[in-house]
Amino acid sequence: MASDQKLFAFEEVEKHNQTKDCWLIISGKVYDVTPFMDDHPGGDEVLLSATGKDATNDFEDVGHSDEAREMMDKYYIGEIDASSIPSKRTYIPPQQPNYNHDKTPEFIIKILQFLVPLLILGLAFAVRHYTKKEQD
């Protein structure tokens, strides 16, 4: 690694996210792994899924061998400008009103919410009416 290291902004690196043009950020370094896409033991999908972000955790989680780490030197093209990496975004799921787990159409639910209390009330009056007649 020469002293005239190229410094890349995150926005530049994230553009290289295709099979024929693939760059990765690992431990603050930028690698052009395009020539390695066909030879990667995990397939090119693994490398493509690590584009557009800091792939350090993805790389370390696999437990690469010393040979694999040495191999990286030939794909090294520069350093990442750490100040250009966006802060992590938190995922906020969309709000869903009243989850309908059995997929009953909404209008049927509204009708039942109205009719069930009426039916219960009617049943209560009927029971009272017939039990009152029997007592007379």
Rank of each mutant, 00 (worst) to 15 (best):
G42Y: 04
W23D: 02
L24Y: 07
F36R: 11
I26Q: 06
P93E: 15
A126F: 14
K74G: 06
L121K: 03
E67V: 12
D21T: 02
I77N: 09
L115Y: 05
V30C: 05
I80L: 10
D32M: 04
I80N: 07
D136H: 05
G63C: 03
E12W: 00
V62E: 09
K53F: 03
N57E: 15
T90K: 15
E70Q: 14
T51G: 06
D61T: 09
G122E: 11
T104P: 00
E79S: 08
A50I: 01
K132N: 12
I25Y: 03
K110C: 00
F36D: 11
H40A: 06
I85D: 08
L47F: 05
Q5I: 06
H129Q: 11
I80P: 01
I109E: 12
K132V: 02
T19M: 01
D102M: 06
T90S: 10
P86V: 08
I77F: 05
V33P: 04
S27L: 12
G122Q: 08
E70M: 12
Q135H: 06
D102T: 11
L24T: 07
I109F: 01
Q113H: 11
D38Y: 01
D44Y: 03
K88T: 13
D54N: 15
K29T: 02
F59Q: 12
S49M: 13
Y99F: 13
I120A: 14
I108G: 00
Y75P: 07
I111A: 12
Y76E: 11
G122S: 15
D66F: 05
G43C: 02
V116E: 14
F59K: 07
I77L: 07
K15L: 13
